[in-house]
Design a protein around this nucleic acid. Structure first.
Lengths: 340, 340
DNA sequence: TTAAATCTTGTAACCGGTTACATTTTTGGC
DNA sequence: GCCAAAAATGTAACCGGTTACAAGATTTAA
């Protein structure tokens, strides 16, 4: 049933019905109640598609993963996506995931697809999860005026967006290194993928505070797979390292696996610490010490920046804000003092 | 720029522009080329919101998780959601996740929220992932005429939907049990949550083929947490069981953890097999034997059923189809022969 | 009691596409 | 060269809301 039919059935104007439903504008209290109860009785509900056209707003935000090699939708990003979806929902927005290329009518990559939706006003804003790779810049260029917020571990320089919500690895890394050093470790390695320069920088700073340098064993691959972690463990171990910080929990779980295969006992002979604090970190054998990332906070701040801008599209030329979010260390079984 | 402005700028009618963009209807090849190149030059792109209103279709499908206690968005469901998103994208549909309750303007639960979107035509169809719980029925009742497909491990009786894509656990469970029996296990336990009756039935059938019965140790909780798995291991072990099938990989990982804590060697002293084949199954220590669920196939069939119905809304009263999807067994390190 | 101020409600012009149908242009057969 | 059939394009009525502004109803103040 359309609003004109409905409004004439119950003897009011379309404007009144619209006002009663939206809460915008003024309606008499009695009239409002009447409209809503009749709507329930006659089973009328406003057509969202028409509302969106009329209001020039879709109520939907896009979520996009910008990574070096390809869009990686791993556990970390899944958990993050979940938080973003929750935060969006509690601000009244839906979320549109752009993961895979579409093949209709012609194949288009996710970035182009998202840009098309933005150009067509199908999404009001975009949240870009980035690992610092330049592809985020390409997406933003295609996005033109659509408001965008970056959610990243690596600060992008001169990026044309509303805000960058940046994960600050220093507090967590600092605490982790303090812990390792307190446990007697002096030869600490780092397992990284390509592009984890913020994590590396945080590590170097934390080590320097103790007068140490990281063992120079870093993964060369851009991937951060389980197998890479396993391989890295072997290399670090061979190099005489006794504790490793891994750029992700998946790498760390791989390293744990490597230790298990090599018969190395954790943490008595070796300590492993991950970054991300995935749900599985507390479920591995041994449980994984990890640096936690406040995903819910990141998500809320990103959504807040976006929705604020959407509500008042004024102040076009404000400089993009940078919001750091602190990480924290969670000691579990995979790290501790040596005792051989 | 709107289509009227654009069409008059380039000297054709709005109908022609619309036809050139949509591919529907007929346009001269030269005209089409002209329209598209001018659109590029003048930076015109059709307003998706207007298209949706006009075509009475949002191009968006809803994804909803219906579970006993609450909407559980665990790794299994995340991996499934990912496949559904990909399948939807390759059919040209976007995906709307309804996970969390909204608080604007009044708090509404996900089912009601989804029903509201459906009533307002904001979503064309719904995919319901269910564990067999009745809440799926409640959602469908609210959904009225909106096409829905159920994706479940447990067949629902008399459910008013287009199709039920049902996971057939028998092949995978059968293979897993054959494997365990071949390895010499005779006392096989099952770790379940509430509602896993299809899995239990498959297990009983598979055991019966070998003249065995399952050890009567099943979890009583509805949760399927890691801790439950750990607890279940202790109980099964105490009961003299030597191999356990777990209703989910998370339970199985918990059981592995329990074994590790108890100093029980896998698989020499005990075998553990999960169900789901999560990405982490091959990353645990030891790696987890598991029964794989063909998520990509499930997702594609669900989307296919939905899009087919959306294309031809005829044949309203066809009986809901049931599409079974076979599971398969993946042996890894956590299961094998006893050797004590 | 009446004019002014305030509150409610209604009218109608948007939002920006799609598409049935009418009209014009091409094509082709004789 | 002429006419019918086919192809291309244009016209205008939709889709179903929102909201500025006008108009009517009610309350307040004098």
């Amino acid at each position: 049933m359309d609003i004109r039919t409905f409004s004439s059935l119950i003897g009011v104007s379309t404007a009144t019905v619209s006002r009663a439903f939206s809460g915008r504008g003024v309606v008499g209290a009695a009239t409002k109640e009447h409209v809503l109860s009749e709507a329930r009785r006659l089973n009328f509900s406003p057509n969202v598609l028409a509302q969106r056209l009329s209001m020039q707003s879709s109520g939907v935000l896009g979520l996009y993963y910008s990574f070096g090699d390809e869009a990686i939708f791993d556990y970390y990003n899944m958990e993050l996506a979940q938080e973003v979806a929750k935060a969006a929902a509690s601000s009244g927005f839906g979320l549109h995931l752009e993961l895979a290329p579409r093949r209709t009518p012609v194949p288009t990559d996710p970035a182009a697809q998202l840009a098309a939706l933005a150009a067509g006003k199908a999404i009001d804003g975009v949240i870009v999860v980035s690992d610092g790779h330049e592809s985020a810049r390409h997406l933003l260029a295609q996005l033109k005026g659509t408001p965008a917020v970056i959610l990243t571990g690596e600060l992008h320089a001169d990026l044309d967006c509303l805000a960058q919500v940046v994960i600050d690895f220093e507090p967590g890394v600092r605490a982790a290194i303090d812990h390792l050093v307190a446990c007697g470790h002096r030869n600490i390695g780092f397992v990284r993928g390509l592009g984890d320069s913020a994590k590396l920088a945080a590590l170097q700073k934390a080590l320097a505070a103790h007068g140490l340098k990281p063992a120079d064993v870093a993964m060369r691959t851009g991937q951060k797979t389980f197998a890479d972690g396993q391989r890295a463990f072997a290399e670090l171990r061979a190099a005489g390292v006794t504790a490793a910080l891994c750029a992700t929990d998946i790498l760390a779980l791989g390293a744990i696996h490597g230790a298990s295969v090599a018969g190395v006992k954790l943490p008595r002979e070796f300590s492993i610490i991950g970054i991300d604090d995935l749900a599985i970190a507390e479920h591995s054998v041994p449980t994984l010490s990890s640096i936690g990332v406040p995903r819910a906070i990141l998500a809320r701040e990103a959504i807040a920046a976006l929705t604020t801008a959407l509500r008042k599209p004024s102040e076009d030329e404000t400089a993009p804000t940078v919001q750091p979010a602190s990480t924290y260390f969670i000691p579990r079984e995979s790290s501790g003092p040596l005792s051989d």
